[in-house]
Nucleic acid binder design. Structure first.
Lengths: 235, 235
DNA sequence: CCAGTTACGGTCAGAGTGACCAGAACTGCC
DNA sequence: GGCAGTTCTGGTCACTCTGACCGTAACTGG
């Protein structure tokens, strides 16, 4: 499509925004970053960090800027992918806004929000609907984001975006367990990860065990694979 | 995100458009509908049917309108899903246009384009890059649309959107063969389709064989399943 | 009646999976 | 040091799913 100056149809322009659902893992549970919306009439609700798109800016750049300006999160290496676009005419009471939603993922240890207006919320609580009230139509976007993350764990190497290198297979397993909300057998998980080509690469290093003891785990780093063959299917 | 009248950042509005990649199957090969773009400087190229979003219109409604106005295709029952949004600042030489791309699917027999400006193009030829030159950034959208269709055949009942009811399993198999570009074993295909819960439902009716003979096939209609369990994985 | 074609049902070996067990290698505590 | 507890790692076993293949059923045209 193009701007067609000759067309006489009643077209106009819309405000275009980018909203980012940033997921991370904290203490074994999936967390989502929310901020307090700026309009005073929305006080008490929470929203995804979002910004209007600037003239010279790509959508990806707007997503990064929204994270930086609203949550104090500078994560240039974070996994960032487009989720879908929400354009219902009535989705924003302040006027027509077409919103491009993004999904972002960061390792557990990296980039907790530094801005006091931003907070982490438990994803399963939000999914149950027992979390805080969300502004705009963000209650529709959040489940889509979580389901996308759950689904992409199956057939992509996305899980490695949540762990910092080098990592033990148990860390990777806890990512799957947190996002899927299930318990996985360590031995079977190991077998599936190792059989997926280029999912992880052995470093030869060994982790020091935690305070609870246990045999020291071998350490791995991310492999080159984007798609997993065979896939890690949900139980 | 909302329209925040108090924000002083240099935000503005964009033209928002919807472009539709309509796929159908003709003579066993996957076909895509393209139209001649309206701006005269783009003569000789082809484009996806697209329209600007109107003030009171949802994105889905714009997609239907683009198909109707530009290709003469009225397919209110066609499968229609959002693909992704393309918002590069320079993607349209006529000015900043954010385009929400849609994927649409219609049965073989239904809705050939009636508008003379619209034509069907072979999808595999377009993928090879040996097809016509495409306008705007539509050469990026088309592979995304085809890959989405290929992928969704695996874990959803999307294939039934390409066939008219009632249908024989061979018709459904030819949908998979056309979109994936492979040959499938009829017996194994049957076993997998029948083992996927609620994928298809037997009608009890029998098809009349074609002019080449062969045992008459049983006829089925779409089942209630949206997701396939187990999935129909690509070879 | 016969050759050709398509639909349908079943068999068989190999791969993948979940459940489970046993040993390896560490911790903290007695 | 010895012991209980924990985690990591490798292996077995039964079950399922898959692809390759064969044989039969049921129609066509000649």
């Amino acid at each position: 499509m193009t701007a067609r100056p000759s067309v006489s149809a009643p077209v106009s322009t819309c405000a275009v925004a980018v909203d980012v659902a940033l997921l991370t893992i904290l203490d074994g549970s999936l967390q989502l970053v929310l901020v307090e919306p700026e309009p005073p009439e929305l006080a008490g609700r929470w929203a995804l960090p979002g910004r209007r798109v600037r003239d010279d800016e790509s959508l990806d750049e707007t997503a990064h800027r929204a994270l930086a300006e609203l949550a104090g999160i500078a994560a240039p290496n974070a996994h960032l992918e487009q989720l879908r676009t929400y354009g219902d005419p009535a989705r924003d009471p302040g006027g027509r806004v077409v919103s491009v939603a993004y999904l972002a993922l960061t390792p557990t240890t990296a980039a907790p929000p530094t801005d006091p207006r931003a907070r982490l919320f438990d994803a399963t609580v939000l999914l149950r609907g027992s979390g805080p009230e969300l502004a705009y139509d963000h209650a529709r976007i959040v489940p889509d984001a979580i389901e996308r993350a759950r689904s992409k764990l199956e057939y992509t190497s996305l899980a490695t975006a949540f762990v910092a290198e080098p990592f033990a297979l148990a860390e990777l397993r806890r990512v799957y367990e947190a996002i899927w909300g299930v318990q996985l057998d360590p031995a079977n998980f190991r077998r599936k990860v190792m059989s997926a080509r280029d999912f992880v690469v052995a470093t030869g290093r060994i982790a020091s065990p935690g305070p609870e003891g246990g045999r020291p785990a071998r350490l791995y780093r991310r492999g080159a694979a984007e798609r997993l063959h065979p896939a890690m299917l949900r139980p």
